[in-house]
Amino acid sequence: MATDQNPNGKKLTKEQERERKRKALDEATKKKTSSEKGKASSKEKKSEVGRRRILPIWLRLLIVLVLSAAALLLGVMVGYGVIGDGKPMDALNWETWQHIIDIVTKTE
């Protein structure tokens, strides 16, 4: 296992080694950013400003809720009308649901 040593030959503590690595990383980052400053393009400037969304998040949530409700209604109609051999529009009547609730809870 290699031990990290400073230029004087003394063993460094973990905290000192972390600090040395942090400084080296900061210096490398500064060199990289200073060399790229002259090469900044309009594409990089746009990414700094931010991105404009076509559809706001609240509208996306609303669309998901509406599509989920439509899928639920369509599924109920297909299940009742096609699989259950009933009229698909009867699946939307309250009397049908009341009858199903009565069957499940066994009240008449």
Rank of each mutant, 00 (worst) to 15 (best):
E48A: 11
L55V: 15
L74R: 07
A40T: 15
K39S: 15
V66Y: 01
K45Q: 12
M77Q: 13
R53G: 02
R53C: 03
I54Y: 11
K32I: 07
K32P: 01
T29F: 10
K31D: 07
E44I: 03
K32F: 13
G75N: 04
A69P: 00
T29D: 06
S42D: 09
V64F: 07
R52P: 00
L73S: 04
A70D: 00
L65D: 05
T29V: 11
W58T: 06
S41N: 15
S34L: 11
A70P: 00
V66F: 03
I57Q: 13
V64R: 06
K31Y: 02
L59M: 09
L61V: 03
L73F: 07
K37E: 12
L61A: 07
V76F: 06
R53E: 15
E44H: 04
R51C: 10
R60D: 05
K30V: 05
A70K: 01
M77R: 08
G75V: 02
T29R: 14
K46L: 15
R60P: 00
S35E: 15
I63Y: 04
I54V: 13
L59R: 06
R60T: 06
I63S: 02
M77P: 00
T33W: 06
V76T: 05
K32M: 12
G50L: 06
L55H: 09
L59I: 08
K31W: 03
R51Q: 15
K30H: 05
R52C: 05
R51D: 12
K37M: 11
V76I: 07
S34I: 07
S42A: 12
L73Y: 05
A70R: 01
T29S: 05
A70F: 05
S42Q: 11
R53L: 14
V49P: 01
S35G: 05
A70W: 02
K43P: 01
G50R: 04
L61E: 13
E36P: 01
S35W: 05
K30E: 11
R52Q: 12
L72G: 06
M77F: 02
K37P: 00
E44G: 08
K45N: 10
S41W: 03
I57M: 09
E48P: 00
W58V: 07
T29C: 07
L62A: 04
E36Q: 15
K45Y: 14
K32C: 09
K32L: 15
S41D: 14
L67H: 00
V49T: 10
I63W: 02
S34T: 10
L73E: 05
S47M: 13
L67M: 07
K37N: 10
I57N: 10
E44F: 04
T29I: 12
G38R: 14
S47W: 05
G38I: 02
L65K: 04
K37W: 08
I63P: 00
K45F: 14
K45E: 11
S47N: 13
K30N: 10
R60M: 08
L73M: 07
R52V: 14
A40P: 00
I54M: 09
K39T: 14
L72H: 06
K31E: 10
L67G: 01
S41H: 08
T33M: 10
E36I: 09
K30F: 06
K31M: 07
E48H: 08
P56I: 01
V64W: 06
L72A: 13
L65I: 08
M77D: 01
L74T: 12
L65G: 02
V49R: 12
